[in-house]
Design a protein around this nucleic acid. Structure first.
Lengths: 208, 208
DNA sequence: GCTGAATTGCACTGGCCAGTGCAATATAAC
DNA sequence: GTTATATTGCACTGGCCAGTGCAATTCAGC
């Protein structure tokens, strides 16, 4: 909609509009004309930058993946050895809630929907997202759990499994409550799911 | 492909073919002509039975949901009080593996993919599946957990949460390992995920 | 200011597909 | 057999859309 002329940030505008339109309509039904209109750009410009619709879609997903990685790593980074009065449950709750918010973020949900819908036609997209975000977040989480185990705060044999299961206890219930990502999850349910996850996680792996 | 003439089981043939084609191509890209060809039926017959493509899709998903419910309830039904030499871990593993197999079943995976892809356009499909299968399976599982708790075999306050989390520990890792349902999960990984899930579940809720 | 590259607008092709119309045929039930 | 209904084959409409071609315009950098 912006009337900016020039070639400077057309690319960004296109990627932003592409996500909006793809998220709203889905990859197939979304028309390149609609993306062009939403970006305030001629259709030709899109083809200049991205070649074809599929490449545009790939670039869109890749951009979202990078964005998601940053937010998720920031969440995991909150997971440190509890200091002073703080206890492990509180720290885990903070991190869990933050991860839950990332998972329920409108953009992340839309991205997962698009991915799942097109996974048969574009199986490599799955790899882009895995290598670009999921795996790294899981590894970072496993690293933190390993530290906590060494510090005697957790009892676990395989930090990777613990990370996978901590994620599972968060995401699977959220997937249900968000109706497969089709509606926002109320804050109350977000904390409820997080509390349940942390509680069960600590019953299984806590050191008390 | 069958050369059967007559009106008797056209409907079933159409539903079967519709699932095959939808699962292969996705709802949008799949053409009604392709379904007709796969069912060995004229396109008109499909419109006679189902009215339009969307209704055909709904009927297809509903049929798959019913099928899935049966299989899942049969799995949950294996969850009984351990008798004699059997221990709880063994029973849970059996049930967990069975549920994991249900989740990874090719037809179930395809159904979830289709659902997720079209959830924005046909949000009521989600409800059909929830009310038709997911909720009932979770309730059945919660019932069994409540029994086990009463019998002193589990320590838990909310059987519904325990059921949700048992499912989460199974499905979320399987979702990852099946690449969002786009490839079969090797049997070895199936048992690995199940073992991890049961182990963590019992560390959290077991009575020892 | 000038120049080359990017951008724009518009029209157009080719392809795909949902759904319909119609006339002919087959089927089930009586 | 007869009849009402289901089915078939085929052609057709109307609509949507990816991608292209082209001429005119606009911009960035010098």
């Amino acid at each position: 909609m912006t009337v900016t002329r020039g070639r400077i940030d057309k690319r960004q505008a296109i990627l932003g509009a592409a996500f909006t339109v793809f998220a709203r309509d889905g990859y197939r039904p979304a028309s390149v004309d609609a993306v062009a209109a939403a970006a305030g750009v001629a259709k030709h410009t899109i083809y200049n930058h991205f070649g074809d619709k599929e490449s545009l879609f790939r670039a869109t997903v890749a951009a979202l993946t990078a964005e998601s990685l940053t937010r998720n790593l920031a969440a995991v980074d909150l997971l440190r050895l509890p200091t002073g009065a703080e206890d492990l449950a509180a720290v885990l709750s903070k991190v869990g809630l933050r991860l839950a918010e990332c998972y329920c973020d409108e953009r992340s949900q839309a991205c997962r929907r698009l991915l799942q819908a097109e996974i048969q036609n574009l199986p490599d997209l799955q790899d882009i997202v895995r290598e670009g975000a999921t795996d790294k977040v899981n590894e970072a989480l496993a690293d933190r759990f390993a530290r906590l185990a060494l510090a005697g705060q957790l009892r676990l044999t395989d930090p990777a499994v613990a990370a996978e299961q901590f994620g599972a206890l968060l995401t699977a219930p959220l997937e249900t409550r968000s109706r497969l990502g089709s509606r926002p999850v109320p804050a109350a349910e977000l904390t409820e799911v997080t509390q349940n996850a942390v509680q069960t996680f600590l019953r299984a792996f806590g050191n008390d």
